[in-house]
């Protein structure tokens, strides 16, 4: 594949000279084709890192083989005989790949990345409060129901309801991003965060049943 083809195929990042041999390195190639030296990670988003167009619909299962293959090629064992620069670069490549893979894997982080790509500011962790009364009332009711749940059937009922709500929310998020409606996507992403939290709480209740009063 020529550098031109590679560029158009992964639609980002220009060809840059290899830091070691000055040969051309295209896209997000981990290694220089000329001298084989590991390259520094390019400042691209999580989608581009894996050669994807930004989209909410990521089939993580089909990305896993690529991800594990790349991580294998960056394994520290392969760099024991290399110089300190290559060792450091291989580590920062591995870290970028890991971070970006986790971003693609987790729906909330994926949605947040897409919103930020679209210039839609998502407040940093912990700094924003919402006052969407319909959503908050629903969350309050679900959390109260969980708090009042007595039997494992009650908890299982809440669990399957949460699962259904989550599936619906993911489908709606996919449609919202497909339609490039970022305001709606932002609201759905907030709802998804609450559903994830609710799922955690349900799991906690399953394994730590309410103490007998």
């Amino acid at each position: 594949m020529t550098a031109e083809q590679e560029k158009s195929e992964i639609h980002f990042a220009d060809v840059l000279p290899c830091w070691s041999c000055k040969g051309p390195v295209g896209g997000t190639a981990l290694f220089c084709e000329t001298c084989g030296a590991v390259q520094p990670p390019r400042p691209v988003d999580a989608f581009a890192r894996f050669g994807l167009k930004p989209s909410f619909d990521v089939e993580i299962g089909s990305l896993e083989p690529l991800y594990f293959n790349l991580q294998r090629r960056l394994h520290p064992d392969r760099f024991v005989s290399k110089g300190p620069k290559e060792r450091a670069l291989s580590q920062s490549q591995a870290a970028s790949l890991n971070k970006d893979f986790e971003t693609l894997k987790d729906p909330v982080r994926r949605a947040t990345a897409l919103l930020e790509n679209g210039g839609h500011l998502v407040h940093p962790e912990g700094c924003n409060t919402v006052s969407d009364p319909v959503l908050l009332m629903e969350v309050m009711e679900m959390r109260e129901a969980l708090g009042e749940a007595e039997t494992s059937e009650d908890i299982a009922g809440i669990e399957s309801q949460t699962r259904r709500d989550m599936d619906d929310c993911l489908k709606e998020l996919s449609s919202a991003f497909a339609a490039n409606d970022l305001d709606v996507a932002d609201r759905l992403n907030t709802r998804l965060k609450y559903l994830v939290k609710l799922e955690d709480e349900v799991r906690a209740r399953k394994f730590a049943p309410k103490a007998m009063a």
Binding site: C127, N128, T129, V130, L136, D200
Partner: peptide, 13 residues
């Protein structure tokens, strides 16, 4: 007053 912090999943009434 019903408010929430979605990042941590908090909801406060």
């Amino acid at each position: 007053g019903l408010v929430g912090a979605p990042a941590c999943g908090d909801v406060m009434k």
